[in-house]
Amino acid sequence: MTLLYLQPLLKLRAVIPITLSLLITACAGLTQTSSKQAPVTIAQVVEAPSATALEKPLEANLAVAPLGTKGLPTVLPKVGLKEVKPPLALASTNQPTDAIAFWLGEAGWAFEQDKLTTPKSDNSYYYLTKVLAKEPNNIKAVAALKKIVERYYKLLRSSLSQNKVQQARVFLSRATLVMPTHGQLASMRQLIDDHAVNQSAEVSAEVSAPAPATAVPAMRNQKLLVPTQLLDQQDQLLAQWLIRVAKKAHALKATMLIVAPKDDQVRWLYQTMNSADPEQRIRANIKHSRPARVEVKYLARKDELEVYAN
């Protein structure tokens, strides 16, 4: 009886530990499962821009963080920045100074190229006059003008050393144009006059001392002086003498060089001598120099041409 009564109790006693064990195991599993779940993230709410906002450019007071490799960009709040406008472009007050610097540079470059007064609108003198038109007392421009005159002085001396008197006169004329009051202009004129006198003396000496006769024909260069006063008057006796010289030169098959200081003088000499034979032109070149003369080259044993007798 006793055993039968206690038998249910014994079963209950065995069931309770088992139940507790199952509960403990279930709780442990539940804790482990909860700890292994992915962390819960709080979704960031980003306000989607409206259609009107998309059409407008970004305002200066919105700062947008750079895009990351993952996720959406973060929109930072407004910080109250004011729109910065670029300053208005003001008219340059240095424009005249800049122009003067440019012209001075161009004048210096042209001077180095020996473009002193030519070609037109692209020479040192041209650019310096533009500078002086804006600043009449510009020290650099005035100094540059003096250098141009000094350069012409050197060119003039070089021309005279090569007996190019007419070219030297051109250099003097251009130097006078650049700076009419320059002190070297008087020296330049004196150099030309002295050279002309010396050249005239040399020619006169050659004329007064004719070449001696030779046994066989030799090349001769007779220099026949033309009186300047009669040349200016276009004297008829002088014209007759020139015609005789032209006819003789043609017979000798000579070549001639007609020399005179001025254009009208050279032109008259040439036309007068060319009228000696209407059917043939004279073989002659022209040259601007002093003294006025006719140089005749031909092959002969002695001087064949007559010298003009005053």
Rank of each mutant, 00 (worst) to 15 (best):
A141S: 04
I100A: 12
S204H: 04
V178D: 00
A141C: 06
Y127W: 15
L104E: 08
P96H: 13
Q113Y: 11
K120Q: 12
E112F: 04
Q95C: 07
A110R: 15
S92P: 10
M179I: 06
K146Q: 13
L191S: 07
G108L: 05
A201Q: 04
L128W: 08
Q167S: 09
E106H: 11
D194F: 06
A99D: 13
L155N: 04
N94Y: 13
N94M: 14
K140S: 13
L128C: 07
K146H: 13
R189Y: 05
V197N: 04
E150W: 03
P180M: 08
E106T: 04
A168I: 11
S204G: 08
H182C: 03
T117C: 10
L145P: 01
I148T: 05
F102N: 15
P96E: 14
T117V: 15
L116K: 12
L132H: 14
D98T: 14
P119T: 12
G108S: 14
A196C: 05
T117Y: 08
V197I: 08
S159N: 09
L177E: 07
I148F: 00
I192S: 01
A141E: 02
S159Y: 02
R157Q: 09
P136K: 12
I139R: 07
A201P: 00
P96M: 08
E106P: 05
I139V: 15
Y126M: 12
G105T: 14
V178G: 02
R174T: 02
S187M: 06
A110G: 06
